[in-house]
Design a protein around this nucleic acid. Structure first.
Lengths: 142, 142
DNA sequence: TTAATTTAAGACTAATAAGTCTGATATTAT
DNA sequence: ATAATATCAGACTTATTAGTCTTAAATTAA
């Protein structure tokens, strides 16, 4: 299997995008999120709690409780989420896994990959959750 | 964790590159490969057998036996190896994992990612094992 | 022919990611 | 106060990937 981000990370992005569609300050329960996004309830809970501890979400217990964005959606980049959930090791290692590969001793795709990776990074820091949510709204996902 | 290719796939690329450094038609044992590349012997065996079944390597049993490339190194692309080991699902799915995301109904990074993915694909089909091996030789890896 | 060496094959274990379950704690409304 | 509802926390199970072990079959050389 080839992939870039973990399933946890994908779920995180989807959940946060969903939250960005809500009114400012409004809280959404795990139950609603899990139901709408078809994500296992308790699994999603762990992910949201993690984002909460990282300061990306706010949470409140009890009835009327739930989760909400801890900052304006336009300020929360994809990179924020990915960094919090998966970490950013992919910006370091050799794609081909050659142990000796480095800037001083590059493999044959080292420089090419560095360029592509830079492109991925640029995408992740330039796109924000607000844009993701905007596209959702436009296409009438919900 | 963020990654692109599985460890099996990385090992495969390294092993095939090593084989490309050998004289044409020369066979190399798993023992030598595993030792030089620091890959678990039996794990590597599975990988090489798979590449063999896929027609990318030739193999021979017994003393003086081993594995060799089934085609000229210049004709074997990175994509050949990756396709054989990991498959090429990454060329299909939405990076963010949005289930509804498609060409008709793109997420906010759909088109941007399509471009980056195309760049990755282009790299994989344009670079061959001969080039990887050439870089190895030049930098005196062995 | 026999012993040594190597790939072939598949069952087995270990590590990690994904997902489930249970109980505690906080908050709200009755 | 009490019941209902929600997050919080952690142990637990399942699925997948990584890695190990054992035996068989093929090939070579003495």
């Amino acid at each position: 299997m080839s992939l870039i981000f973990s399933r946890q990370c994908e779920y995180a992005l989807q959940a946060v995008t969903f939250l960005a569609l809500k009114k400012d300050g409004e809280l959404t329960s795990i139950k609603e999120l899990a139901g709408k996004l078809r994500i296992p309830h308790h699994f999603l809970a762990k992910i949201l709690q993690r984002l909460s501890r990282k300061g990306l979400l706010t949470s409140l217990r009890g009835p009327t409780g739930g989760f909400g964005l801890a900052m304006p959606a336009k300020e929360m980049t994809l990179f924020h989420i990915i960094e919090a959930v998966d970490g950013v090791d992919f910006t370091q290692q050799c794609v081909m896994g050659f142990p000796e590969c480095s800037g001083k001793n590059p493999c044959a795709v080292h420089d090419k990959w560095a360029g592509l990776r830079e492109g991925i990074y640029a995408m992740l820091v330039s796109r924000n959750i607000g844009q993701m949510a905007g596209e959702m709204k436009k296409k009438e996902y919900q």
